[in-house]
Each structure stands twice: as C-alpha cells, then as structure tokens.
Design a protein around this nucleic acid. Structure first.
Lengths: 346, 346
DNA sequence: TTGAAAGCGCTAACAG
DNA sequence: CTGTTAGCGCTTTCAA
C-alpha cells in the first residue's frame, strides 16, 4: 500500500505539506505541482480510515431502509443515494426487517463506524429500536423519512397525509361516488391516522355520513394485506361503489382480488391508491393514486443532514411536502389511455 | 465519547487488557468480569474506525448496484444485505447509473474506505470502469453478479442463460408454437448472447428454422424498450404466435403494448419473460417466465467473498446456477388462476 | 496473565 | 509557505 509518506519522499517535501495540497490549503505553486506529480506517479489514494480517525468525520451517512417488497423502498433509497452522491457523501446502508430483533444492534454497528448522520425509514420498528434512535439522535443528526418524532432531536421529511387522502376521496365524491370503502393500514402510526382522517373529512365535506363498516383494517401495507382486506368490504350491503387503499400496495391487492372475481373496474367498483409508484401504471386497469414527491423529499433529507452536520440547524426540522392527484383508469374509464411510463426522473 | 482508556481506568487495568477481553483473548476470569462490568457501566462502544486503521480490516463490503428501475436490483441488494448481515458484515452501498461517468470514481471511494471486498453488478458499466475493477480485484476479493470475467481475478455467480432461455422457448414449442418472436437485449454482453443462443437451440431442437427477422434488438433491458421493440415484431407476416423477451421487463413492455392494441394474450399471441420477478404476477395476464435463484446466488456471492477474505480460495470461482420454468397465464390460459404472491422468501 | 509502548496513516497545531 | 510533531482510538508485540 502506497501512502502519504511515499508521496512526500518522492516529491522531496514533508508529509504535512502533502496533506496540505491534498486538502486544498495554500501552498506554493511549485510545491503543489511536484506533489501532484508524485501523487500521479505513484497512483496514491488517501486512506480514508486514517483520515476519519484523525478528523472524526467520515463523509458517510448511515441509511436504514425497511426490507419490504414495497417498491417505495427502492425509490427512497435511490433518491437518498443520488442526493448523497451529489454531496460527495457515501451511504452506509442497512436494511431492516419489520420486527427485526437486530435492528438496534445494526444501528449501533453503523453508528460505531463513525457515520456523520443517519437517514432512516422506521417502518416496522419496535419501540426498543426507536429508543436507541433517540439516543443516537443526541449525538449525530438523524432525519426520519415519512414519520416525525415530536419532542426529539430527530428531523423529518414527510407529506401531509391528511390533505393527500382528502384529495383522493374528494376525487371520488366529485365523480359521484357516495359509498366509499376504505382499507385502513397502519392505524398505529400517525401517518395511518392522518390518512383515515383525510378520508373522513372528505366525506364530511361532501355531505356523506361516515360509516364504520365501510372501513376495514388491513394487517399491514403489503399487496396481500389489501387482497385480504377488500374481501370484508365486499360483504357490505349495499356494496361500496369505490374503494380507497391507505397505500398503493393495498389498493393493488384490492384490485387484484376484484379482478379475480371478475368485478369490472371502474364500472362496478372504482379503486384508488395512495402514495403512487411506478407499479400503478403496470396493473390493469392503471391505478389512480396520490403521488408523493419522493425525490424532493429525499433531496431535502440529504440537505437537512448536510446542514445539521455543519451545525446550521439549531432547531429540529419537520417538513411536510404537498401531494398531487394522479387520475388513471381505475377510477376514470376515460383517463388517458396512452402508455405512460412513470419513472423516477430528476 | 467514551473510549477504551476510560474502561481501562474504571476497571483498574491496562488498555491492552481491555482490548484482550473485547477480542476474546485468554484473560483471567476476574479481569474479564471487571472489564465487562466497566463496559456495561460506561456503555462503551468500540470505535470501529480506529480498529480498522489498526487491523486493516473493516468487516464491511462494498456493494455496487445499478440504478435502474428494474426490480432485480431490489432483490439482489436484499439478498446480499441479508447474507452480509448474517456474517456480521456491513454493506457499503453505491449505486451506479448506466454509463455513469463517476462509477470509477465511486468505486475508488469505496475502496479507499477500506472495504474488505466488493460485490458488484456491472450492468451498464463502461470499459474504463471495468478496467478499474480489474485493478481492484488484484487487491481485494471481488464477486460479480450475473457476469463473469474470464482471465481476471474476479469471481462470479451467474445462471446458465443458454439453458434457461432454452427452457422458455421449449415450453412454447411444446405447446405448439412454431413462429416465435424474440426480443433480444444486451447482445453486447455474454449473458445476452447466451440467451439468444438458447432461443436458437430450442428452435433447432424443435425442427423450426431460425428466421432473422423474428429477432428484434431492444435498446436496453427496460420495460419501455420491450414496448418499443415489440412493434417491429408486429410488422412481420405471418405474425408470430408467441414472443419471448430476453428479460422480464422487456416482456412486460411487450405485454403492455399488445394490451394497448387489444391483442388477446395468450390466445392471439403468447408472451414469455425471462429472469422472473414479483411483478410477473401483478400484470394481466400473469407473465410466464424463467426464474433465477436470486437468494441462492447472493448467498453464494457472500460466501465466496468471505472465503476469499480468509484466503480460502486459490483460484477464481465461477459458479452457474440452474433456472426453473414458471408457467402462468401469458402462455397458458389454463395455468393456475389462484392469486399467487411471489415473495423473496428464504 | 498482564502492562508498557509502539505504531496503523493521516491531519493540524505550532514554529520557523 | 513549509516542516516538525503530537496525537486520533485501537491492537499487538514484547517483557515482565
């Protein structure tokens, strides 16, 4: 392994001087030149581990994502990754399984490795793991994705789920639906509660009485949970003319069950998702949904981390992003039929 | 930050001794006890950066995955992540964009951070980046996923693409198809060539003459590439009665185009994918495909890395895994209609 | 079995 | 502007 000392020798200068040109401090042009020559000659690469030990920063960020098959993981990670890369930072990635016994341990691992900050999606985390997170947040900046932790040092980026779901349901009432089933997921989470609230407020605004038995709770946020939950809704009488899922996956699960029973969508029953993803345009019919600005959110998360590391933030930051309605064929037969490729573009 | 020295002081022993109990060397029970007590009392966490600098190993592995929207990325990463986690190793993740100018730079970054090995999917990498990879492979173990580099130090895990595609096409000929269109992707890669070869061999075995104009090349491996490519195939006369995609995404793209033109699948044209993924069961009709044992492959990749780090391997390892046929409704109308959830299970 | 001490490769005062 | 030097927190000889 060729190291700084070797560069110094070849260039005929001190190691301190080499370090200076490496880190962009003021040096004479002559010195700079000869050092750079030696670096190129030897193909020298600084040892980041030694640098980290000395400077106590690593230019790396811990990222924790849930292990679900949910595609939002992919977009979240992708966004964070692009953002960090632009800032010259490296992601240390950890996946967490919901109810993973080792999440706390993994988080410690990552912390011990000297990351400068943490960006986390805490979906499925147990309280004990969250406790650990609070502790870490006292020491390095932490940004939580789509979930806020009021009263802690944890920053967050999220969306206004109440207004987002309001839009979804308002869309349905605006095209005439009066009996709207709701597949509720994550009612133990603030985000799940806000979505339900949005549903209720939209009904209220349309002058529709809320009916408890049009809301069924799903086991979780996955496709199969929606597939199972929708079956309850089909036992109601009169049948709902529209069904909204608390997220996109449960809506797709519902869609798939209805398809298997030859229910016509949207003619017999309209289906609406929430938290749009590329998959929406690949199912038949294409799923209407409410879209969340993943890229803006992840970019912001990275920005917050960076600022926090630099000590810019004195207060905990909690930002909510707006959502946008995507109307497709699962609620509107006449919606654009052109093949639409939804990509994560920047 | 509480450190080893503090533990030593509290326990009334030397730092060397604390290090010994930390690393499981022989110490007296008394010493062990008191040190452990002090560690617990102070809630001491070793600084992995310092440890790495000293030991020259980091227990971390660099993982490079392509930035595509292709879901196979997710499964690959998930498998690797689970595998590493089981070995107590941490993934340092880097995403690469096809034709990314910075891939080489990113790889250097990761290398400089002292990873003990590298697991890479080189999809879309330019030659200059590969050159860099060869160099790195001289210094630390590298395992490539789904692509081999004969004559280099790079290990690989892959599948037998020729026999895999053979199975796919054989399935079609066995149910009576004689005119089978093929969407070729990645003909510049060995894996793309092997798949095409499998297609040709299956035709030959069925006594069907190969026709150049039933093979169209797609721009890349994405859904939209299949969507575009299939349009060429529809200009052939007589029309093919079946179409095979070189991977799952292009097959889905084809499926979506045919759907938009109200072509009945599989009655008018059967569609077959390759390299199955969960998405196959979410499109309508469900896509027949050839499945690759992602988890076994990633687990093997991790195993190889681990062994190589320990110096077990003297030779470069190249392993091919077998594929399995998944028959669904896009080729067989009567295939199981039950809702099938494909999950990445272990 | 334990302690003392010498670094791992780098940066950052501090002097010159 | 440049060189010297003292560590960053840990492991690992080497002696005791």
């Amino acid at each position: 392994m060729i190291q700084l000392k070797d560069v110094a020798e070849l260039a005929g200068v001190s190691t301190g001087s080499v370090s200076k040109v490496l880190n962009g401090y003021a040096v004479s042009p002559r010195m700079k030149k000869s050092v750079e020559l030696a670096i190129a000659e030897l193909n020298y690469k600084p040892n980041m581990v030694a640098r980290s030990l000395r400077t106590k920063t690593s230019n790396s960020i811990g990222v924790m994502v849930p292990y679900t098959n949910d595609p939002y993981f992919m977009e979240f990670f992708r966004g964070v990754s692009i953002g960090l890369s632009e800032k010259g930072k490296v992601p240390f990635l950890f996946s967490t399984e919901p109810h993973d016994e080792f999440s706390a341990q993994k988080m410690q691992q990552i912390f011990m490795r000297g990351v400068d900050g943490l960006i986390v999606s805490t979906y499925g985390w147990k309280d004990s793991v969250l406790e650990e997170l609070y502790l870490i947040a006292e020491k390095i900046p932490v940004v939580s994705y789509k979930r806020s932790f009021p009263g802690t040092a944890i920053h967050s980026v999220g969306v206004d789920d109440c207004s987002g779901m309001f839009k979804a349901v308002e869309h349905l009432t605006s095209i005439g639906h009066r009996r709207i089933g709701y597949i509720a997921s994550g009612l133990n989470l603030d985000t799940g509660q806000q979505r339900l609230k949005g549903y209720q407020q939209a009904l209220e605004q349309a002058g529709i009485a809320y009916e408890d038995n049009l809301v069924v709770e799903s086991a979780a946020f996955q496709i199969e949970d929606g597939y199972n939950a929708v079956q309850q809704l089909l036992k109601r009488f009169p049948l709902p003319s529209a069904i909204v899922g608390a997220n996109n996956s449960v809506a797709i699960g519902a869609l798939k069950f209805l398809e298997s029973r030859n229910v016509k969508i949207p003619e017999d029953i309209a289906v609406m998702g929430y938290d749009d993803e590329p998959l929406s345009t690949l199912v038949t019919p294409k799923l209407s949904s409410v879209s969340v600005p993943v890229y803006e959110m992840t970019a912001k998360a990275v920005q917050i981390i960076e600022d926090a590391i630099l000590g810019v933030h004195k207060e905990t930051i909690n930002i909510l992003f707006p959502t946008t309605l995507k109307i497709r064929n699962s609620t509107d037969f006449s919606a654009t039929a052109a093949f639409e490729f939804e990509r994560f573009s920047r």
